[in-house]
Design a protein around this nucleic acid. Structure first.
Lengths: 141, 141
DNA sequence: TTATCTGCAAAGCCTTTGCGCAGAT
DNA sequence: ATCTGCGCAAAGGCTTTGCAGATAA
């Protein structure tokens, strides 16, 4: 709680009850909830909270780096007619997606296997970085 | 074109001009277009096509396996309060996301480096499969 | 006290759906 | 000829926004 207070202060955020409850919901969840899921959870403790507040708060948290989105790099649906197994390079700046051939990446191996009961089917690797164009433009700044 | 005709036939799909143009747009694009992007592209050749048709066709193609979505495994936004570098296991059945500790996965290495001009910043691995619960339920069927 | 935040309701995407006509088999 | 697919417009989700009252600093 004090930690949360400090973290808000250092980012110039007001430490409100709503934000604290939402933050706790995020910290305590192991299942990577959706905004709706956060809302459900928070509502148990604070039935009057609005979904809009949850969305706004999540956005704020992501912006100040208190929370991350899972794989949000390519924001909208993207299509791939290449059905061969392969991996992707995603440009963090322009969101372009490039194919990486599977042979170009060392096979991913799990060091101690998955926890009991989990069954892996396939593995994909996302390399995040800057494409040539964005890399150049970034340097120009 | 004949290949496309065959592929449609084998899946019981009518081989229409619209589908052919959309399929070509997908095959010829290297940038993993969004549905909007496909629409833009297709419209150059067929200005009368409707966005709804593009969506329907894409959905059909994905269903019959002619095309894939890039990382559609966890359909909606998912949040992560764990800011440490780590990877994810995604259950293909229930879409649950579990953390995999970074130390449990061999570091990903690029066999021959990225093409010229690309700069990598970080790499994330997604292991796709079945979680214990879904694994059990799948076997029960 | 002043600036920021919350809740509400309305608006904005993106995507899907229903239906009648057109086109493929 | 029959069945499937297309285009249109309308509806459906999810997410964002504007504003007035409430709360933190």
């Amino acid at each position: 709680m004090d930690l949360f207070r400090t973290r808000c202060a250092s980012r110039g955020l007001a430490c409100t009850h709503q934000r604290w409850v939402i933050y706790r919901a995020l910290m305590n969840s192991v299942e990577h909830p959706s905004p709706e899921g956060v809302y459900e959870q928070v509502r148990r403790e604070m039935p009057s909270i609005s979904l809009a507040t949850v969305y706004k708060t999540i956005k704020t948290f992501v912006e100040v780096g208190l929370v991350r989105e899972v794989s949000p790099e390519h924001a909208t649906v993207r299509l791939d007619a290449n059905l061969e197994p392969h991996h992707h390079f995603i440009c963090l700046r322009c969101k372009a997606i490039y194919d990486l051939r599977e042979e170009d990446i060392e096979p991913v191996t799990l060091r101690r296997g998955l926890p009991n009961g989990f069954r892996a089917e396939r593995t994909t690797v996302e390399v995040l970085g800057l494409c040539p164009k964005c890399s150049r433009e970034e340097q120009a700044n």
